[in-house]
């Protein structure tokens, strides 16, 4: 599977809604300093629950809401396109609480499986007709809302309200998880050199 498009709404330097299409293969993102390139990478980490606010250079969740528009909500949706040859693992490979997720997994299979009804939200012109949706596409969304009592974060999997745990488990079966090294952020490269040898060995412990 691959990322088909990323929809960023009022997140970090994106005020208003922006749809960025992607394709299979090798895509570069380029532009001047401070234009928003790393923020696109942050939007992936944010949406898929892959890292903390601090990693996205925010002190708290509400820093992720665009500070130029007046809106108090930020949302990112990622649409994945499935492929026939996808390797899907029955259980998330590197899930450290694999026994717990088995029950959860069976439940989500029923809820989110191939024939689950898909609730419609805002119009999504870029996606194919609904009957095709659950067959060929997977969608993951995350929305944060600022209110007087703080920020709240809601996850959606295939347009239905979900939890971070469910999403981690679901994506984990496609080998997308916080423990993987598939996202390298700006400046990470130096980290591998500067870390102690024990920390480096622990990387192997984690992935074993």
């Amino acid at each position: 599977m691959y990322i088909y498009q990323i929809e960023i709404d009022n997140f970090k330097s994106f005020s208003g809604q922006t749809v960025i299409p992607f394709r299979k293969g090798f895509t570069t993102v380029s532009g001047p300093n401070g234009s928003g390139k790393s923020n696109i990478i942050d939007s992936i980490l944010f949406c898929l629950g892959l890292s903390s606010s601090r990693v996205m250079r925010a002190e708290k969740l509400s820093d992720l809401v665009n500070n130029l528009s007046k809106r108090k909500e930020a949302k990112v949706r990622i649409v994945f396109k499935k492929e026939p040859h996808d390797r899907v693992f029955e259980e998330a490979l590197d899930s450290s609480n694999s026994t717990q997720s088995t029950v959860l997994e069976q439940a989500s299979q029923l809820v989110l499986g191939e024939n689950a009804p898909v609730k419609k939200h805002a119009p999504k012109p870029e996606l194919p007709a609904e009957s095709a949706l659950s067959q060929d596409f997977i969608t993951v969304s995350r929305r944060i809302r600022e209110s007087s009592s703080g920020s709240s974060s809601t996850y959606y999997l295939n347009e239905q309200v979900s939890t971070l745990t469910d999403i981690h488990e679901y994506l984990g079966r496609y080998n997308i998880s916080p423990g993987c090294f598939n996202v390298m952020m700006q400046g990470d490269v130096a980290g591998f050199v500067n870390m102690s040898s024990v920390e480096r060995r622990k990387i192997i412990d984690e992935i074993a």
Binding site: F14, F26, S30, G31, G34, S35
Partner: peptide, 14 residues
Amino acid sequence: DQTVGVTQRKNGIT
């Protein structure tokens, strides 16, 4: 294969 171009408008918006 393709490049996504990113710029910022005068007011810092991407």
